[in-house]
Design a protein around this nucleic acid. Structure first.
Lengths: 202, 202
DNA sequence: AAGCGACTTGATTGATCGTTCAACTCGGCC
DNA sequence: GGCCGAGTTGAACGATCAATCAAGTCGCTT
């Protein structure tokens, strides 16, 4: 029951930072919900910032198991996988009445001058997410224009997801999210049509 | 010197909320920078939340003069105006070394459970921004597909801007912003090409 | 010139913040 | 059996927080 005191702190902090953000979550909040005493927390972590770092590391290391595997279990087509991933964020919004969105995005905008290690972890989370999308785009290369900048489109997909989550949360309306994803889908369709056209040139 | 005590509080709070966010800005921060004493602030505002409301009202009421007019002074073409507006956010990022982005977006993600009036003001800011873009799209209707959902594309433009600002700030790299806007531009180009094609059908 | 009300001053409040620390428990090792 | 050190306990700390308020200033009205 001691090795998982640390992990209980981290998972509790993940929940609380997701629900209330970093600043609005007090150390006392983490302690009471995780049933841990302050001395124990400060035994494992030098301070609150380091709990945040551990949370961001957990997200970074859990992207495969907690984000990609659940979304891609039933889906093989690479482009379908991209939208299945986005649908996971949709499900999260719906499950919380559009209260909570992407935890990384919220933290990224909340922390105005994050310590370098914290910012590096935020970047790592974004980069891993983008890399997963890019792998899908590579797998779907034959359906997309040959000249397509895949990394750029993967980055754009993250951009649209984060922006769409932000608006859905602000409007408290999942329809806003759906409309944004629909436009992204049409963007992909225009790209595949372009690829079709260039494959039969003469 | 009394009527503008209130406005000095509001403009100072605008700056501070932009720089540090709402929670990280203390009332004492606002007081010291604006050279106002606490009693005066609490004479005009019941509390800190109401300063935030006043800030959001100022943004909402100032969108024409402070956002659109500067960006559109030299630009007439409606689609060029959309990207001129986005370029304004780019300039803000560059001027602050990618530290500060869209104040509304930052507040929207920072306040996890905003009071209803605060959330309504965030929505109003987003809605006004989107409406300005939609007016451009209506003005450019003949270059775009007839069936285009203009409100949806305007909403999408906001989505891309907010997501792009988030990433540029996180990566501290304006190139990320530029790549995202480039993809949006290509989206617009594909739409205008579609419109060209449907105008010469036979 | 007297009085009123809008506005200012700044010390002070109690709550809450992140953090510290001395005392304690307890399993494993010599 | 005695010791050590990892982990726990929870009271306490100083700092900072948003907010209060009694006293005071000043311009305007009558």
């Amino acid at each position: 029951m001691n090795a998982d005191t640390r992990s209980r702190i981290v998972t509790t902090a993940m929940d609380l930072f997701w629900e209330k953000g970093f600043q609005s979550t007090s150390v006392a909040d983490i302690l009471s919900r995780s049933q841990v005493h302050s001395g124990s927390l400060y035994h494992f972590f030098p301070g609150k910032q380091d709990v945040l770092a551990a949370v961001l590391e957990a997200y970074r290391d859990g992207i495969e198991e907690w984000l990609l595997k659940p979304a891609w279990g039933q889906v093989d087509d690479p482009i379908a996988r991209i939208f299945a991933l986005l649908d996971g964020y949709r499900a999260q919004l719906v499950a919380t009445d559009c209260f909570y969105g992407c935890p990384i995005g919220s933290l990224a905008l909340e922390l105005h001058e994050p310590d370098p290690p914290i910012r590096a972890l935020l970047c790592a989370n974004f980069a891993n997410w983008t890399a997963a999308i890019e792998r899908c785009l590579v797998a779907a290369a034959e359906r997309l224009p040959a000249s397509l900048d895949r990394r750029r489109l993967a980055e754009f997909t993250l951009t649209v997801m984060e922006g769409a989550v932000m608006q859905a949360r602000t409007y408290r309306d999942i329809a806003s999210f759906d409309r944004n994803i629909a436009v992204l889908r049409e963007h992909f369709e225009m790209l595949t049509e372009t690829a079709d056209a260039e494959r039969v040139p003469a």
